[in-house]
Design a protein around this nucleic acid. Structure first.
Lengths: 137, 137
DNA sequence: CTATTTGCAAACCCTTTGCAAAAAT
DNA sequence: ATTTTTGCAAAGGGTTTGCAAATAG
């Protein structure tokens, strides 16, 4: 996927640091900020953590990146080029992407009634207490 | 609702500080930690913020309280005595409880397939970019 | 040429920790 | 009597900010 048009669309400058962040997020590995930082430093040893944070805030504000609370001390990052759901294990922090199903769109309609229209973006996070990754339980 | 049996069940001691926290959360006002702290101090001026945090961690770990990420700098707290969904406005942080609908249970079944069973608790957070509380769309 | 972005260091939260005294069972 | 909880103060950890230099368009 070519991410540059999405940056242009938002009047954001195409810097190598920013591209590096987006390319890593585009692997759909859901890194935490520090995992992302370490990953970028492999290709970009001089990058500052502040730059990573500043970019993430811009990318979140413009809707290209979504931050998912894992109920651990660190949240995880996901590129958000199309609506999808997240499934998080509260115990181990494991995170999966999931496409919305028809039943979720039905849920969305309910929501739209409840908040009186205008849902521009919709994210469903399903949190479970434990999952197969946990081993224990 | 009598919350004491729920504490006993979990072998948690019934202290006035803890009861004060639970009583406030039981109003379903979804306070942030500092809002909760200020509220408790009305009845309990000597309480320490550390006590509030320690209690919240215990209550979250034992499943009586749920912490909802609002995508603002502060998350919000909810008593969690029965499964329900949360709707959060990312822009203004407004938060609503919502009962699960059948369509969400269908979604839950999908999830159970995907993570191979054993969902012990299930939370759905629907995040919208703006809601009627925002005024500015 | 102008506006944005970067990088550094310091500041800023919010949250946790250690420990002794107090309270609950 | 034993275990948990409280409260204080200090430490911790993640995130933001201010500003000058560098870079993108």
């Amino acid at each position: 996927m070519d991410l540059i048009p999405h940056l242009r669309e938002r009047r954001l400058k195409v810097t190598p640091q920013r591209m590096s962040i987006l390319k890593i997020l585009n692997r759909h590995i859901h890194p935490s900020v520090d995992e992302l930082y370490e990953e970028i430093r492999k290709d970009f040893p001089s990058i500052s953590l502040a730059t990573v944070y500043k970019n993430l805030n811009i990318l979140k504000d413009t809707g290209m990146v979504f931050e998912i609370n894992t109920h651990t001390n660190k949240s995880k990052l996901d590129i958000y080029m199309h609506p999808h759901a997240h499934i998080v294990c509260k115990k181990c922090g494991a995170l999966f992407d999931m496409d919305f199903t028809d039943s979720v769109y039905a849920y969305k309609k309910e929501l739209e009634k409840k908040i009186a229209g205008k849902i521009t973006k919709f994210d469903v996070t399903a949190t479970v207490d434990s999952c197969e990754n946990c081993k224990i339980v």
